[in-house]
Design a protein around this nucleic acid. Structure first.
Lengths: 355, 355
DNA sequence: TTGTACGCGTTATCAA
DNA sequence: TTGATAACGCGTACAA
């Protein structure tokens, strides 16, 4: 009895080769295309394959043999669901997907801190490389794991230390530009709405002694303070419109201490601030100017066009992908620092004359 | 000379076993924990491992041997970036992630229609199972591929035909509830804002002869028409606030033909419609009532609370995960149809008295 | 252009 | 509790 008779077993490339009357290696070559094969042979192999219901090499075996799985892990520190609520991350993923596709690689979603012990996680997934997003303390552990496994790593927007390529932005310089723009318009009373100061941050005012451990937040804050050292800062609990709204309410609460301009660290926050201003009866930009950061399209914000810093989010993702590609080829990848470009919209204007 | 001297080569479990003076299988068991091992032995193996810089079994080899990769593919028909713009999909992903985690599985992002031929794709990825999202024609091809490979498949919100388990909603019945609610409030002039009628749809009015190929759109539309057969329908190009805004403008454009209520097929669309109403000077719900669908949190919509149908998006994802889990164990998974629950907010009210 | 031979690194099975 | 054996399914030098 031939082996196919065992019924339940799936056909392998050897089965196909036997059926076609060629050697396994020839059959293999037909599928991989790595070596020329005569048309006649190819035909027979293909026929045999379809006769046996063989749909191509088993990826698991192929990846063992090749030493590559074609999978790049993307590690988030957040719950996966919320990771994609942020348009910037969404765009990054997009760029990343673009950049790894030519590698023949796919993106595997991973959380760094797996809840149950049984998780898939960094330790057991067949990764060729990993991209860590927003490295702030929590991801440190993941970083160690990956480095121990000897897998190439790239970090986006975070401090991974010495030898790990990082993709980042000129946050401080960029934010300084927006601040300078406001100063040039005559603004002097400024409030800043920042991203979370720490990973588990609850929203609230930032004081001089508040430790800001999230890199992005700290850098952008520094840029704003470079120009307005006396500005007050309120840290949101996340990059959401509603957070900006809440922050805006706080900021506009006291009529006697109202700023003439608000520097928000993200476009979503800025959108919320604008809404809070409207609610308070303040016109934008006549009564109060607002700047954002990111340069994303905020759904539903029309007719406002934010004055903001456009960051190349997609490019960041793409660069991370390129870095991964390089490392997979053995070329050490360099860190990259992207530049944001200032874009003036209709949410900033001259400071209102003093009453 | 021992083999470690080759320097560049990574240590394998055999190396560790040799170093520890045990057999490879014993060493394997120490890492997998599948069989009791004496403390002394474990200790020696672990020591040997760390001495050799061995960080655990190679996932590729393990998956070949086990016949499992621990990877579940999630196939989108859209560009990956836009896939997560939809909060409902985001939540689904969340539930899906939850449900596959106990399996020790991760989620691999895939597009169905890979651009370059070199892609990772369904054919070459080491998948244990696949989840197709929104099966509308395009995904048919993907479906065939996966079925040919003999990989378990589940489809969410789409028609995959006969033998493929599907996770869906009672779209028609649910939408009918919202419509009935409006009718009970005295509304008679209704406009419907639908999701795209086809995959590549441009926004515009729907006529009787317009073919609606997207299942969700068709089902919800039918539910609304069950109650208001004469309602007009305008199809958006996607589930976005701005799309709802554009649709709303069209709908409210002619003062003589203004509906007293708008049934939107998603919360985001509803939010846009509300904004368009505000722009037109119509108060919600005094002048016009608006219903949504999904029951998501629309960032920035406060103080409105949509009257909507809450769909268990996370549960859908979780169910898909459960179905996958079942199929992986050989148990055939059943299709599931979730029920939406009606939630009354403050965006619907009595129909205004006739002028 | 095709075939031979071997190993990729692990784990299931069974016997000791 | 441990060890020997045998695949898992494939790709690729190398020789023919």
């Amino acid at each position: 009895m031939s082996r196919q008779d065992t019924g339940t077993r799936r056909a392998t490339i050897s089965d196909v080769a036997r059926e076609a009357g060629v050697s396994p290696s020839t059959a293999s070559v037909v599928f991989s295309g790595k070596t020329p094969v005569s048309d006649a042979t190819r035909r027979r192999v293909l026929d045999a394959a379809s006769a046996l219901g063989y749909t191509g090499p088993d990826p698991r075996a192929a990846s063992l043999r090749r030493g590559r799985s074609g999978i790049v892990g993307v590690v988030f520190e957040e719950h996966l669901g919320t990771a994609f609520l942020d348009p910037v991350k969404t765009l990054m993923m997009d760029g990343l997907a673009d950049a790894v596709t030519p590698l023949g690689a796919g993106l595997l979603l991973l959380r760094d801190h797996e809840p149950t012990g049984s998780g898939p996680s960094l330790t057991t997934a067949p990764l060729d490389a990993a991209v860590l997003i927003g490295c702030s303390g929590l991801l440190r552990e993941s970083l160690e794991t990956v480095k121990a496994r000897g897998i190439p790593v790239v970090v986006i927007e975070g401090d991974a230390g010495d030898d790990v390529p990082r993709i980042g932005l000129d946050n401080r310089e960029a934010q300084r530009q927006a601040a300078s723009h406001l100063r040039a318009l005559g603004h002097r009373e400024i409030a800043i709405v920042t991203l979370p100061a720490r990973v588990d941050w609850q929203r609230g005012w930032l004081h001089d002694d508040t430790a800001v451990t999230v890199d992005v937040t700290r850098e952008r804050l520094a840029g704003a303070l470079d120009v307005f050292p006396d500005a007050t800062a309120y840290a949101a609990a996340g990059s959401f419109i509603d957070e900006g709204f809440a922050a805006g309410r706080e900021i506009f609460a006291d009529p006697d201490r109202r700023p003439t301009a608000v520097i928000a660290q993200s476009d979503l926050l800025a959108a919320g601030v604008i809404r809070a201003a409207e609610e308070t009866g303040l016109r934008v930009p006549e009564d109060v100017s607002v700047t954002g950061f990111d340069g994303i399209v905020v759904d539903g914000l029309a007719p406002y066009e934010l004055t903001t810093l456009v960051q190349p989010a997609t490019d960041k993702g793409r660069a991370a992908g390129a870095a991964v590609a390089a490392m997979l080829e053995g070329t050490p990848a360099a860190s990259i620092r992207f530049t944001c470009t200032f874009r003036e919209g209709n949410t900033t204007g001259p400071a209102p004359a003093l009453a």
